[in-house]
Design a protein around this nucleic acid. Structure first.
Lengths: 353, 353
DNA sequence: CTGAAAGCGCTTACAG
DNA sequence: CTGAAAGCGCTTACAG
């Protein structure tokens, strides 16, 4: 191969047969070089390497998938790519798996679409499926049942309490316990709940944590907490937070501390209270959830809870790889991740203390 | 198949041969049903459909990739998954392609890693590669050259001015022209630039837009703009914005309007100025860039520029699909997207006007 | 509608 | 190190 030839257009090489002819070695020999097998002359290896550089040839991996080789592919079924924390989990787990030579297929499944997505993944012979986000319980439990039936490993990140599922979830009860204890230690005894209540498992877990912390101070949730969620429609979180705060501000007797479902609602609440003439944290304390970047961009900065995404992904990756290597579906495993509470300037001593 | 059998474990069916035996029809017939070919008895179709439901069997797509069938796979090479706008582009384009039955491979390539990623994609026989984000120019131009050599379609989103590349980019010059004209119309004649200047193509495009707008009012950029970027190290955008604003606030004679590279820096600047005792927009006006959700969460709300991501992705998808269908690499195409300027409360009349 | 056959690209024994 | 062969799962002519 002289230089003139190299710089010209590339011979379209589509198979090891053609490639072996180009290299001038037997197909078998070339295949062995490609797979790094021992007992080959250095000269042959060099010739193959040089030819690969010249032509860009790589063996077609799909041929091996017919012979039972694993696809080394993992499917990510995302509820949404618009949630920053979910995307961060995706990014970290994808990198983890890439380091282990897995290829990632990624798809977003809105409500009712998870069947289509998992079917596609199974058709692509993925070795495992990861779910990130919050899916309708019936729907995801049906997916889990199918995967278990087909002996396909899986892990669900974020959503707990699913029948038969391997899950990795933040310990939301612990998180809310930390938040509530912090507010209690600042002297607060009445609490406004901003979008915290609900029928979903995650809401129930959260309330359990709040109640447990209250109980330690002999407080009763029914009398010491209050929610005005029913007064407004939740269209986007920030505006919902603003609206809830204004409604609380208008009450003759209002709680001194507010626990929000997430940072966006909390930031909305800060603005809602401020626009009603109240000072944060002098008049009201507010807590967020997720420890987004924006927590330090508000004034005051926002007290929040970090999800410990690294630990979550670590656990998910470990679960996934061990399931894949086991080659057999084991008893479902539920892993809880400890949250990390971060006090900032949006929480302070209760007024009059 | 009676009910008792259905609820038991599934016969592990791995091929059309086994599946045809299970169905009780010829392999050829089953294959024709699977591919929706005409001239089949409804009864055969029903039997195959029923068996698919029972067993979950789908034909192994990889067998066809050997026979020259297109893989219908597209690779996404992401600079980062931590940039919200980049992720939104990914999400939208992935959905577009999914609707056309393409499978998406997604990988993040930090600096120096793009070769590894594209090699993997090419080994997986992708039909096209999408780049989203800002890569080192030399590096991405080398990737584009390789892809052109191998006749693999591509599109680069966000990064313009690349040799031989198909690109879809926001018209940053137009965007900055809009921003600057807005500020000029409010009476501002001196401008602070927050991280806008730089050697990258995108910075040069931005500056061109600012200069053009100034020229229309017979203003000279050298005398009417000022940058203090050199005084601080940019570690994270928000803190950088805070620091820059404080430095400007300390000047004896400071510009009345500030143009920030992005929303995070602008929000930092708002806080920096406010903490220095200045009012926004009464004392200083500030503009952001990207129109992130947080623009409406600040007080005052932030004047910004929307990237028109939908239009961008529309154009990228069209380019990609037309390249794939053409089956031949054509002359590189450069597409500019018109921005959408959104005035909010962070900009107001120049002081003393 | 059935059945037998070809062939995609690959690796791996097997025999030189 | 070479060469011929087998076989993975699939679809598509081809002949009934």
């Amino acid at each position: 191969m002289d230089h003139a030839e190299k710089s010209k257009s590339i011979p379209p090489i589509r198979s090891t047969t053609e490639f072996a002819r180009y290299v001038g070695l037997a197909r078998t020999t070339v295949s062995r070089v490609l797979n790094g097998q021992p007992g080959l002359k250095q000269k042959s290896i060099d010739r193959v390497m040089k030819a690969m550089e010249e032509t860009g040839f790589t063996a077609n991996p799909y041929a091996l998938y017919l012979k039972g080789k694993k696809t080394s592919t993992v499917g990510f079924c995302m509820e949404s790519l618009l949630t920053p924390t979910a995307v961060k989990k995706l990014a970290l787990l994808q990198r983890h798996l890439r380091d282990q030579n897995y290829t990632s297929l990624i798809e977003v499944a809105g409500p009712g679409k998870s069947l289509q997505v998992t079917k596609h993944f199974l058709a692509m012979r993925v070795e495992a499926i990861v779910f990130i986000g919050h899916f309708p319980v019936d729907e995801i439990e049906a997916r889990i049942a199918e995967l278990t039936r087909y002996q396909t490993p899986h892990v669900v990140i974020d959503q707990s309490g699913l029948k038969g599922a391997n899950t990795v979830t933040l310990d939301r009860a612990q998180a809310m316990h930390d938040v509530t204890s912090h507010l209690l230690s600042l002297g607060h005894r009445s609490f406004g709940l901003l979008a915290v209540e609900g029928k979903l498992r995650s809401s129930i877990d959260r309330m359990a944590g709040i109640k447990a912390a209250l109980q330690e101070k002999n407080l009763d949730a029914a009398t010491s907490t209050q929610s005005l969620d029913h007064l407004h429609v939740r269209e986007n979180d920030f505006d919902y937070g603003v609206a809830l705060a204004r409604s609380f501000a208008a009450l003759p007797k209002r709680p001194s501390a507010y626990i929000a479902l997430n940072d966006e609602i909390a930031i909305g609440a800060i603005q809602g209270f401020q626009s009603a003439g109240l000072k944060v944290p002098e008049d009201v304390s507010i807590t967020g959830f997720n420890n987004l970047d924006i927590c330090v961009m508000t004034s005051p900065t926002l007290t929040s809870v970090d999800q410990q995404i690294d630990a979550t992904i670590e656990a998910a990756a470990r679960s996934l790889l061990s399931q894949i290597h086991a080659g057999k579906i084991a008893k479902p495993e539920v892993k809880l991740i400890k949250p990390f509470f971060i006090p900032r300037k949006s929480t302070g001593r209760a007024p009059g203390i």
